[in-house]
Every structure is written in structure tokens, then in C-alpha cells.
């Protein structure tokens, strides 16, 4: 709260506007933090992977980091609005407070925002690094994902093919994604991963599902007429169920 130095001889923090701003700030910070995190967390689907848990954690963290700053801006707004308002067709007298600069406020503001920026960057990089490592997981299963206007299909080892994604729980999986025509984007909503499917190239992303259930794949890049319908389910099942399903699918594929 070292923003602005009043012109009075008193210590700056004794000014009623500073006190008022401080009180507003004390109220707004937790309000914004709680509302902001709840708004996000309650809207987002329950995580079905650690990656998604990480995303939710990041949102929480960033919201709380941003809350004091947002609260300060809104507190100053609230103070200004509650202190001196003038209605009418002619202006009020000029304000008494004529400070047009405050090096201390400028410096504080810039340093604090730079630190918050650094904080956001570092947290992001840490998570990014972890996700990069997931691509090289040794015991991962590999699934080739093919997008085509307007359906997905999946190729597994042993020649199994499917239009629905089946994944074993707690086993890392690496997706190799490509497209037959235009750009699509392969998004497993509840697992928090997304990667574009580009014609002529193969892109990769990885995840470890950690919850048994049925989740959603949606295409997240406008891909033409039936883009809205380019979505499907993901079934995360136990290891045994997965093996059985895979064997069934291989057999189905193998018959002539």
C-alpha cells in the first residue's frame, strides 16, 4: 500500500483515503481469491489425470497470486467512487491532490508486477518440463490418433483399431496424432491434454489416466461443416478389462 504520497505533512498512511483503500483491499483480496478459484474449479470437470490436476492447481495458484493486485486496483476504484463524486453539467473544482508522479509508487508497482510475472513463468516452466518428460516414458502404451473430417480413429498395437478410445488406468500413454485432411485438435477434456492433428505431420502428447470412467474427446479446432459433431468418448478401464478389449478388437480386425 505504498502507492501514493498525499500532499499533507502527515505520514502518508494516516490519510483517510489510504485507510479506506486498505480496508477495501483487505475485503477484496480474499473475496476475489475465493470467488476466482471457486468459479474456475467448480466449472472445470473433475480431473482424470495428474496433468489436469496440475492445470487446476495452476489456476488456483495464479488466481490467488493475482487476487491482491486486482483487489488493490478495485480498492482504489472503490475509494475514488466513495470519496468524491460530483454530478452536474459543470465540472467540480480541481482536485487538491495534484501529484502527477511518484517514483516510489512507480518502482514498487513495476517490481511487484515483474516478480509476479517471474513467478508465473517459473511455475509454468516446472509443469512444462514434467509434461515433456512424459513423452519418453518407457513402459507407455502408444496409440496412433487419426483425425479425419469429422471423426477420430485410433490404432493400437497388435493391429487393434477403434473409433472409441479405450485406455487402461494408471498406465502412461503416448498419443501420436495426425490428420488425413485439415487441421483438427485432439482434446481429452478431463485429462487436460490437447494437441493439434496436422495433415502430413505427426505430433505427440502424453498422459496417464488415473481414474476409471467415461470421458470426452472433442475436436478443438474448427474443421469444417460437422466440427461440432467431431467428439467421442474415452473409456478408462482397469488393466484387465483393457487387455480383454484389446484382444477382442485385434481379433475383430484380424478376421477377413
Amino acid at each position: 500500500m505504498t502507492e501514493l504520497k498525499p500532499s499533507t505533512k502527515n505520514k502518508w498512511w494516516k490519510h483517510p483515503d489510504v485507510k479506506k483503500t486498505f480496508i477495501f483491499w483487505l475485503i477484496f483480496t480474499p473475496a476475489i481469491g475465493i470467488f476466482g478459484t471457486q468459479f474456475h474449479v467448480l466449472s472445470m470437470p473433475d480431473p482424470a489425470s495428474e496433468v489436469m490436476g496440475g492445470v487446476i492447481g495452476l489456476m488456483r495458484l495464479f488466481t490467488w497470486a493475482a487476487a491482491p493486485v486486482a483487489a488493490l486496483v478495485f480498492a482504489i476504484c472503490a475509494t475514488a467512487l466513495t470519496s468524491s463524486r460530483h454530478y452536474g453539467d459543470n465540472p467540480p473544482a480541481d482536485a487538491d491532490h495534484q501529484i502527477s508522479n511518484s517514483p516510489r509508487a512507480n518502482a514498487t508497482w513495476i517490481v511487484v508486477s515483474a516478480m509476479l510475472c517471474l513467478f508465473a513463468l517459473v511455475t509454468g516452466l516446472v509443469v512444462l518440463q514434467k509434461e515433456g518428460d512424459a513423452l519418453h516414458e518407457e513402459n507407455a502404451i502408444h496409440v496412433n490418433v487419426t483425425g479425419q473430417q469429422w471423426a477420430w480413429n485410433y490404432d493400437y498395437a497388435d493391429g487393434a483399431r477403434s473409433e472409441v478410445l479405450y485406455l487402461p488406468v494408471d498406465v502412461p500413454v503416448v498419443f501420436h496424432i495426425t490428420s488425413k485432411d485439415v487441421k483438427h485438435s485432439f482434446w481429452i477434456v478431463e485429462m487436460g491434454i490437447k494437441m493439434d492433428a496436422n495433415p502430413g505431420y505427426t505430433t505427440e502428447t502424453a498422459v496417464t489416466p488415473n481414474k476409471i470412467g467415461v470421458f470426452n474427446v472433442r475436436c478443438a479446432e474448427l474443421c469444417g461443416l460437422l466440427h461440432a459433431y467431431m467428439q467421442n468418448k474415452v473409456h478408462v478401464v482397469s488393466k484387465a478389462d483393457y487387455e480383454k478389449w484389446l484382444a477382442d478388437r485385434s481379433a475383430l480386425e484380424a478376421r477377413s
Binding site: 473409433e163 467415461v214 467428439q231 468418448k233
Partner: peptide, 16 residues
């Protein structure tokens, strides 16, 4: 002739 879709059922119809 390929049916697929948006419907929200856990076991969606897929015919091709």
C-alpha cells in the same frame, strides 16, 4: 455411410 456424433450417451452409436 458413417454415423457418429455429438450425443452424450456413454455408449455412443458408431456405424461405418
Amino acid at each position: 455411410f458413417t454415423i457418429h456424433g455429438l450425443a452424450d450417451a456413454n455408449n455412443q452409436v458408431f456405424v461405418s
